[in-house]
Design a protein around this nucleic acid. Structure first.
Lengths: 326, 326
DNA sequence: CTGAAAGCGCTTACAG
DNA sequence: CTGAAAGCGCTTACAG
């Protein structure tokens, strides 16, 4: 019932399956008369023929899918936008983007073997064995954790470092000397948070500021208020938050303590989520140029497909969105 | 290089591929000695054998994937959590959840044919022809837009209606008679918004309240402030927002107008996103019991797989999270 | 310019 | 209890 195969199209068009395949996959090496091409295409369209991806995958060894592996937690609008733009960049070449939220329960291998993707893009770290196995299977593996967009799990990711640096430089430029870091309580966020904090630490050192005071801040007003009190006791006035959500919690803590931003303390987030501008006061934050990153990622995938040289890295594309909180 | 096939496992274990297949797919109809089973399983593990999903899909007609189709816009933490829990519920049965953000650019048919999933779950409406084609191909198609979790594009979705109803009932119970509805400016949200607003309208009628005053509110303070002014001119004091993001904008508008919630006007959102409790004032909102919905969805998929009767619908599982904004 | 045929790696009646 | 063989639908050398 599923239906129409290339054999049907061949019979209807009065040619062989070979010819159908050549016409439809667009192999221009083989010369087939324009008339024949037209007829085959017309028949395929008329019958509603769509090649079986399973058969094609079995034959060629891979599907036309790009698999994106996300961590097992909500990723927020920034990554969502990135995926969206990535899908845009790849769809023109017949590649579809599929997203998988990593579960601890099932081995990753089951998934990529099932999908046999053209490329796997990791937004969460891979186990070394998974990485190797995928490479061995001829799958292009990209990560977004490292500078080179290659999973390199030991080096701190340059972009993440740069984010922390930008936060501190802005706070320092506003005259803040004692910096606090609002660390996310969600343990799953550790990978990113570690590198961003490292960026904060290094920049404090570079600017001759004292060590930043790191305090965990959950998405809870009382907890955040407690952290704000602790920071104030240590004369911390410049606060860098892991991301906008955490920054929003800090802002709530500041209000709960009847203090005000940016007078009593300044807060800088990361991501520029849509609600950042709606905060009280509107949140100053570090924005990542998602479009740029998405296009770069798409270009990397396509370059590998075409066997041409990798495009050069477009840079982090970070910039500070200055509002009223810092 | 990709490597190990069932033939390798068969040779190493000294049995036929048939036996390997029987052991590994766990067909207990056929009786195979425990000793043989053990040996095959041990060999497969030792060689790191993973069956080719493409071959299996070609043979059986479907993969072990469940494809979730999302609209082409960020969906927010609620849907993300739902997907997460859905994956949990299905992974025990060897099913992996894959997510695709709908692009206007490529026909949906290309994707589901490529994936040949066991089930497709739609978080966005399908075209009728896609729906029919998938059903014809033997794919179970579920939607989350309708009560029955079946795509039924003409009927307003009961859950969405119930959300709007709950918002109005809460506002009415607080003494608000003139209700305003904050409509999202993002056009892509129309499907959900329409039904929620309908729920608001009907409930206003049921309670003998005047027609709600619908105003578009983007995620922008100035725009929201303008809307708040307009509502006040019409003596609207109870505000139902499409979702928490829009509600946060309304709250920002209220502050910009130097008014206060819930004294001057009350605001109710939808979703209970993590930052809702961090708003100023903390946002009263309608929460959907995501866990319940996810388990129901998983159960629907599995029931179809097992050929048993559908589980009964668990109800909307909506409840109001009362904070300070209303 | 076009076609007959092999083979990708599975699963599953069917025959022992 | 186990194996030989067909066939899922494609692509692609190879032969005309």
């Amino acid at each position: 019932m599923t239906g129409i195969t290339s054999a049907d199209v061949a019979r209807e068009s009065g040619v062989s399956r070979t010819t159908v395949s050549y016409v439809l996959t667009g192999r221009n090496g083989v010369s087939i008369s324009e008339e024949t091409r037209r007829r085959v295409r017309e028949t395929a369209a008329r019958l509603g023929y769509a090649p079986s991806a399973a058969a094609r995958a079995l034959r060629t060894g891979h599907s036309d899918l790009v698999l994106c592996i996300l961590p097992d937690r909500p990723v927020g609008p920034v990554i969502e936008t990135l995926l969206d733009e990535l899908a845009d960049g790849l769809s023109g070449r017949g590649l579809s983007v599929l997203v998988h939220h990593r579960r601890a329960t099932r081995p990753l291998a089951d998934l990529w073997r099932a999908v046999t993707p053209r490329a796997v893009i990791g937004f969460a770290p891979f186990a070394d064995e998974d990485l190797l196995a995928m490479r061995r299977a001829g799958i292009q593996v990209l990560g977004t954790l490292g500078e080179e967009c290659e999973p390199d799990l030991d080096l701190p990711a340059e972009s993440q470092l740069a984010i922390g640096a930008l936060q501190v430089r802005h706070l320092a430029a506003r005259g803040h000397r004692r910096i606090g870091y609002a660390w996310p309580t969600d343990l799953r966020l550790g990978v990113f948070a570690r590198d961003r904090l490292l960026g904060v630490r290094r920049t404090c050192a570079d600017l001759d500021l004292p060590e930043p005071v790191v305090l965990p801040v959950g998405l809870d007003v009382l907890e955040a208020a407690k952290a704000v009190r602790d920071w104030r006791e240590q004369d911390v006035t410049g606060l860098a938050a892991y991301n906008d959500d955490v920054a929003l919690a800090v802002l709530a803590g500041v209000r709960a303590e009847r203090l005000s931003c940016p007078d009593d303390c300044a807060v800088v987030g990361v991501d520029d989520v849509p609600v950042a501008r709606l905060a009280s006061p509107p949140l100053t934050t570090v924005s990542q140029s998602i479009g740029v990153q998405a296009r770069y990622l798409a270009a990397l995938v396509l370059a590998d497909l075409d066997g041409v040289a990798k495009p050069s890295h477009p840079g982090h594309g970070l910039h500070l969105v200055e509002r009223e909180s810092a």
